[in-house]
């Protein structure tokens, strides 16, 4: 592998199969630069958690390589893992103990000063509940405690697998703001999600995975451009078949049960409305529709676009 010391995570041509012949990762490649908030997007079952477990050294991929700040997480575990705080799927917590006791155990394992417990508890907003048993915690509180555990060693890299799972809207906003603050302090954040809207709000870089392959990797602006290409308007008119025929040579038009979806740039919308009115079509409704993750996947997979 090339010099990867300024790259937080480098994944090269990763292959993994839980059962021989049933590939979950099929040559996945990712590059997470230091200092980024990297959104790792994929539908459920796309291979996000498998990728994260491989990066963390919990799985041993058949082919390909993983580096964390240039270190192999399996063969150089000590130096690789001291730089990482992780929350993998649901947090692993001892329910019969309090939140504080869970953090105390983690502090003891890593020989960290006890003062860190108070700092991370404040950071995730769990001060009022930290002396309660974890069995009495809500899903959101457990998620925050998991985040606090990941932050304990003050690592330069945070790997978070769906960290807003189970949080209410205000909890999601709090976690998002907390991650932004941590990023401003210089931490690299690798964040997986199946929600494009969630990633768009926070990430500076995005990687999209589909069936174990990287379908897109780039900045959020590049993703936006890609999305714009897939955006359009929903039109409700009195003669949908006439309109579909009228536009079919020039535009992509999909009849969705009387409601037409016309792939068109946002700024071309007034011209389209004007044209329809001039032709005597009654326009009842026009609504801009942004491309969502599902459509983006369809586009990426349909066009066969893939990372080299």
């Amino acid at each position: 592998m090339p010099d990867l010391s300024n790259t937080a995570i480098a994944v090269q041509q990763l292959h993994y199969a839980y059962i021989p012949g049933l590939q979950i990762l099929r040559g996945l490649t990712l590059t997470v630069p230091s200092g980024a908030i990297y959104g790792f997007l994929g539908e459920n079952g796309a291979g996000k958690s498998t990728t994260i477990r491989s990066v963390m050294g919990l799985l041993r991929p058949g082919k390909g390589g993983v580096r964390i700040f240039g270190q192999n997480p399996v063969t150089s575990k000590r130096s690789a893992m001291k730089n990482v705080g992780a929350l993998i799927e649901s947090p692993a917590l001892y329910d019969h103990l309090t939140g504080y006791e869970n953090l105390h155990i983690a502090v003891t394992y890593r020989r960290l000063p006890k003062v860190r417990i108070g700092e991370v508890v404040e950071l995730v907003g769990l001060e009022k509940h930290i002396r309660k048993r974890v069995s009495a915690y809500s899903t959101g509180m457990k998620q925050r405690l998991g985040l606090a555990l990941a932050l304990l060693s003050d690592p330069p890299l945070l790997i978070l697998d769906e960290p807003t799972n189970g949080l209410d809207p205000s909890g999601i906003i709090e976690v998002r703001n907390c991650l932004r603050r941590l990023n401003e302090q210089g931490k690299t954040i690798f964040l997986s999600s199946h929600l494009l809207s969630e990633i768009e709000r926070i990430a500076t870089m995005v990687g999209i995975i589909h069936e174990g392959r990287t379908m897109f990797e780039g900045s959020i602006a590049e993703l936006q451009r890609l999305k714009d290409r897939e955006s359009g308007v929903e039109v409700v008119v009195d003669q949908p078949t006439v309109v579909a025929a009228l536009l079919s040579g020039r535009r992509t038009v999909v009849d969705e049960g009387g409601r037409l979806f016309v792939k068109i740039a946002h700024e071309e919308t007034p011209a389209l409305i004007e044209e329809l009115i001039q032709r005597g079509i009654k326009v009842y409704e026009v609504r801009h529709r942004k491309s969502d993750l599902e459509q983006l996947f369809l586009h990426l997979t349909g066009s066969g676009q893939e990372m080299p």
Partner: peptide, 8 residues
């Protein structure tokens, strides 16, 4: 998953 990702 937490124990085996500790740096030792």
């Amino acid at each position: 998953k937490s124990l085996y990702t500790l740096p030792f």
